[in-house]
Design a protein around this nucleic acid. Structure first.
Lengths: 219, 219
DNA sequence: AAACTATTCAATTAATTACTTGAATAGTGA
DNA sequence: TCACTATTCAAGTAATTAATTGAATAGTTT
């Protein structure tokens, strides 16, 4: 019994260990979007390919990610939505309990509260009523791999030049990769500076998908 | 930006680090019940007091637990319900993704499925309709610190002698500390052997409380 | 088959973590 | 005040983890 307990907590701890490294968490967050090759992951994390590979194997050993080899490349993906849920809860706990996180979020992403994020259900309603234009500010490839129904893809660098195409009467809601991705914050600021009514979606695409909301794919 | 990302993921990783040790997880699960002194925690974990104290300080540094000194003793407690939610999700991920955990749970707690755990909402309904007798199979002190409304406290070692006092017509639902606490499994088996209709509540008291369901205190 | 690419493996080093031991601190009761 | 208790602190050792390097593997292209 005590032996059992010991063992089972050791097993749970393996999940914690996998989540105990910033680089692995960044990779997971990146993978939450869609599958990625080792090279892509090495690029975002800034680690060597060999090192990245080893981190990925640690994540795979505890079942948080899985991999497929296609041609020369090996693609990793988050193994299921409950992993995304786990990261969401972890982020939530971090925000509530780690003074440093709130501080980072607040100082870096300008005043967070000012940007009033929109809740998912609320967005769904407003979209159904045709009240808002939803923009996806992620790179085109991520958009292609899945996006919110009816969302228009406007990667950050294109926002400036596509501003006049947006309906100034409509409220605009922007979203990006996740709660801590700066794209949507920047987009909202940019839009507000031009007089648009704009806000952010709470969290980002992975959380939307993870919560079971509808997802649209590009042709 | 990249600097920000790095920092924020490092911060999240601190939560993961705190959860990366089996002893700390066991302590957290134990604390999920109610506050405990360092000595009590050292006893359940089987570690030295000094070592236990150090683990607790790690948990406190990331805000997962807080402590109060009362007289000679220092009592630790889980700092809020979202920590319990975090552990629940972690356990869930572990069960879904770590073959070892499912195996341990299944082999140790006899055939898990056979015991059909009852969902919390379902239990609430049946209690309201007066259909079930709820028994709390934790030690008396844990029961005193909070239990399900109307639950009767029958510590494991007393079950045998108090069997005849239970209404054989009523369905009996047992619960204990949590999803991986063996008390309720044992109680249900014991009850079924005597011809009672018995089942377990899914999870345990901490999860019940964490989900915002009503809790009763002893006088 | 030979050259090439993406990834993994294996060996090494540096840094971090777990645990032990014994001393220090703060509060209690005689 | 003195002895006592519960906890924390500080220093040291053993074990684990992260990152680096270069070689090995599997699949592709020529």
């Amino acid at each position: 019994m005590s032996e059992f307990k010991h063992n089972i907590f050791e097993q749970f701890a393996r999940i914690g260990k996998a989540l105990s490294n910033g680089n692995r968490l960044q990779m997971l967050e990146f993978l939450a979007q869609r599958e990625r090759s080792v090279e892509e992951l090495a690029n975002v994390s800034g680690l060597s390919v060999a090192n990245t590979s080893q981190h990925l194997q640690q994540l795979r050993q505890v079942g948080l990610v899985s991999s497929v080899k296609r041609g020369l490349k090996v693609f990793y993906r988050v193994s299921s939505d409950d992993v995304i849920e786990l990261m969401r809860v972890m982020r939530c706990v971090a925000e509530n309990h780690l003074a440093e996180v709130g501080h980072l979020v607040n100082t870096f992403l300008t005043v967070k509260d000012e940007l009033e994020p929109l809740r998912r259900e609320e967005l769904m309603q407003r979209v159904e009523q045709g009240l808002v234009t939803v923009i996806d500010v992620r790179p085109a490839e991520e958009y292609a791999a899945g996006h919110l129904p009816g969302a228009v893809n406007i990667p950050p660098q294109e926002l400036e030049q596509r501003l006049q195409l947006l309906d100034a009467g409509h409220e605009i809601v922007a979203y990006c990769r996740g709660a801590h991705c700066v794209y949507s914050y920047n987009a909202v600021q940019q839009l507000r500076e031009r007089g648009f009514t704009a806000s952010r979606l709470e969290d980002g695409f992975p959380e939307w998908k993870g919560a079971g909301y509808p997802v649209e794919l590009s042709a």
